[in-house]
Computed example of a mutant assay.
Amino acid sequence: MEVTGKIKKIEETKTFGASGFRKREMILTTNDQYPQMLKIEFVQDKCDLLNNYQEGQDVKISINLTGREWINPQGEAVYFNAIQGWRIENLQAENSNEIPPMAPAESFETTTNLDENEPDDLPF
């Protein structure tokens, strides 16, 4: 899946536990009629993908939706969802590489240098 929009905020990378699990979150504002602010997380080596981006840039992000179940102390199932990014592309750079549209064709007047008295050898 992909989502496009403008980067609203990029957080610093956070490290968790003895295993050194890394996570970096960002907020993306979509370009929809009713813009949504989505929290997208990048984990482990994908955290570094955000190093070359800054707030205000238009981007396209490839994402996976993840979900998990947790059984709370009362024995009830609680569900969590997350949006994980795994690729990010700068849309501004993509647009700047496009071939600019051609200028509209100018109208050309055709002039004929035919003598009205010469016979016309066209078949119609």
Rank of each mutant, 00 (worst) to 15 (best):
I88G: 10
L65S: 13
S62Q: 13
C47Y: 04
L91V: 04
G85I: 07
D48I: 05
T4A: 07
T66L: 13
V43F: 07
P73Q: 13
T112D: 06
E2G: 09
K23C: 07
E25W: 06
R68Q: 09
K46F: 13
Y53P: 00
T30K: 08
A82I: 08
N113W: 06
A105P: 14
N72S: 03
S19W: 03
E41D: 08
K8T: 02
Q36V: 12
R68C: 06
T66P: 03
E2I: 14
M102G: 09
T66R: 14
F80P: 02
L49A: 08
V59K: 04
L65H: 14
G75W: 07
K6V: 09
M26S: 05
N113R: 00
I71C: 03
I71R: 03
P101N: 10
N97T: 08
Q33R: 08
S62P: 15
T66S: 05
Q54M: 00
I7F: 02
L91H: 03
A105W: 09
T29Q: 08
Q33I: 14
T15C: 01
C47K: 00
E11R: 09
E69H: 02
I10W: 01
I63K: 04
D58W: 01
I61A: 03
T66E: 09
G75S: 04
T13L: 03
T13I: 12
F16M: 02
D32R: 14
W86P: 12
D48S: 03
E106K: 15
N117Q: 14
N31E: 08
M37R: 15
R87P: 12
Q57R: 01
T66M: 09
V78G: 00
N31A: 11
P104R: 15
L38T: 13
L122G: 07
E69I: 05
T29F: 05
M102A: 14
D120C: 10
K14Y: 00
P123V: 02
A105Y: 12
G5I: 13
Y34A: 15
G75F: 08
K46T: 12
Q92I: 07
E109R: 10
I61P: 10
I71F: 04
L122W: 06
M26F: 07
S96T: 04
